[in-house]
């Protein structure tokens, strides 16, 4: 998978921030100068776009960057700019949850999240769930229980179920139903999804 990671190491902004802290120890005046330099003229908050700009995203632990417009959703940035097509776009309105990813450990709709707004956050996608060749227990049990048919809802469904098990080691059937209540599956795989998730919970406790 291609990763154009340009933002590794020291960025200009990060350098100035670091320099500011050092300067503040020595003299308040110097730190004020650095702070001004950081904000840069004209004064006030930074307005970006509508032209494309470089956006840095931390996806599955790796820093990646892409030149995107502010209107680009996280789902589009993942699929189009970062070539990570595991995350699916179906309704594109937050109604089906096929695009579910975790931001800072919490499942959200990547189709209703702007990529620019996900900077500085820890993004986890379906590609980052397995540990190398070892599948996540939820993935393993989805296969074991045949919990998919056409497979289009599956990445989002798995991200919802895996998030549940991160926060609840001993889920009831109702907990699984609630966790997947936003994930639409038109093939109707729900009973097998529930079985697979409960089996994964057992597997993770063992």
């Amino acid at each position: 998978m291609s990763t154009s990671s340009s933002n590794r190491g020291i960025s200009r902004r990060g350098f100035l921030k670091g320099a500011g802290v050092t300067a503040a120890g020595a003299a308040i005046g110097e730190s004020a100068v650095v702070a001004f330099a950081e904000e840069s003229a004209p004064k006030g908050p930074k307005i970006v776009g509508p032209k494309p700009l470089s956006v840095s995203l931390k996806v599955n632990g790796a820093e990646k960057s892409a030149a995107i417009e502010p209107r680009t959703t996280l789902a589009e940035a993942l699929r189009v700019n970062l070539d990570m097509t595991g995350t699916k776009i179906v309704c594109d309105r937050g109604a089906c949850s096929a695009c579910t990813v975790w931001i800072d450990g919490t499942p959200v709709n990547s189709c209703m999240t702007l990529a620019i707004d996900a900077q500085g956050k820890d993004i986890r996608t379906i590609e980052g769930l397995a540990m190398g060749d070892t599948l996540h227990p939820v993935q393993e049990q989805f296969i074991e229980h045949d919990a998919m048919q056409c497979g289009f809802c599956t990445p989002g469904m798995i991200m919802s179920c895996a998030a549940l098990l991160e926060h609840n080691k001993n889920p009831s059937l109702d907990d699984v139903k609630t966790a997947t209540s936003g994930n639409l599956c038109r093939c109707g795989t729900y009973p097998k999804v529930f079985d697979a998730t409960l089996a994964a919970a057992k597997m993770m406790k063992a």
């Binding site: 307005i47 776009g49 502010p70």
Partner: peptide, 19 residues
């Protein structure tokens, strides 16, 4: 979706000055 400018406000005052 139309394209737009983006500004990340750090305070209420700043948000209102950007509006």
């Amino acid at each position: 979706m139309n394209n737009f400018e983006w500004a990340d406000a750090k305070s209420i005052d700043e948000a209102q000055s950007l509006m």
